[in-house]
Design a protein around this nucleic acid. Structure first.
Length: 153
DNA sequence: GCCAACGTTGGC
DNA sequence: GCCAACGTTGGC
């Protein structure tokens, strides 16, 4: 079992949107490192910290799970999609996504600020300077620590 | 809205 | 293969 952190801009897609949708293909990731994680390492049942970025209330908003492993992201073939990639083809897709499902929503968002201040979480990608990875692996201990924090705020 | 840090592109 | 220019991310 692996643990992850997925970033999402809540104005685009929030934890509530995730909750109200039955299945969600995680489309639109256009970064090779993030793609490789999704394509090669995200396994069914893996747990995901759902992170809200670029918003008023920045931090981890809840937990999701991988409900289906990698398949080609169909937005890359759709000329009308902002995620369209003319260099990709159905025969040789460039971008992949997996499907995620809502698991739980925290009573309060665990703020980025608190995560930064927690010594146990100092090695998370998230708090590293300049880290822009939208899909990042998280250690079991780190995952559990964030859950602990969600219970005490 | 600003801007630092990062990733990608493309000319050479 | 280098690297400048550009576009994007994302916290503040």
């Amino acid at each position: 079992m692996n643990y992850w952190l997925f970033k999402s801009e809540p104005d685009e897609f929030s934890i509530d949107d995730l909750k109200s949708s039955t299945t969600t293909p995680w489309e639109g990731v256009r970064n090779y490192q993030a793609r490789n994680f999704m394509r090669d390492e995200c396994k069914k049942g893996d747990l995901i910290l759902f992170y809200h970025s670029s918003c008023k209330n920045i931090g981890v908003a809840g937990v999701a799970t991988v409900s289906k492993e990698a398949f080609p992201d169909k937005a890359q073939f759709d000329e009308n999609s902002p995620y369209y990639d003319p260099k990709s083809s159905e025969e040789k897709p460039r971008w992949f996504c997996c499907e995620v499902k809502f698991k739980s929503k925290f009573n309060k968002v665990v703020p980025l600020k608190d995560i930064k201040e927690n010594a146990k979480l100092k090695d998370m990608h998230l708090v590293k300077k300049g880290s822009r990875l939208s899909i990042q692996p998280v250690k079991k201990d780190e995952f559990e620590e964030v859950l602990n924090m969600s219970r005490t705020i």
